[in-house]
Amino acid sequence: METRTPDRARTSILMLDDEPIVCKRLRPFFQKAGYEAEAYSSPLEALERVKARRFDVVITDLKMEGLDGLTFLEKVKVLHPDTDVIVITGFATMETARESFRKGVFDFVAKPFKLTEILDVVRRIEKERGLHP
């Protein structure tokens, strides 16, 4: 069985959730789907990484110790305005959703969510941006 050899840059995704189980589920799923995927449980480490390089997509939780997701979203958008951010949260309210969209979030996904749901959102971003997995 041949493995896939990327002939062009794969879509890069950074995932941030302080609950390790979320990263453990998302990272291998996106890797298997052909994405370049990095996962972080610490917001500060994720922020350092975003400062070091640009990602096509950032997926972040909202409620985290140390740095909340909305602040992280703001910082990502300042550093890389063309990075699309998807917010995932178990505490979805209309208020947080409105605030997220005001700050430039691409989409908002409530936990628990299906793996295919978040993949669909990433594919929408790729379509809009002309990216390829």
């Binding site: 959730d17 609950e19 979320v22 589920r25 995932i88 936990k111 628990p112 969510f113 793996l115």
Partner: peptide, 20 residues
């Protein structure tokens, strides 16, 4: 049924989901 399906790995969930 939803909790059962979450157990199958189809969903991404966190601790807050279990409590709720």
């Amino acid at each position: 049924a939803r909790m059962d399906r979450v157990l199958g790995g189809e969903y991404v969930f966190d601790r807050a989901f279990l409590d709720s």
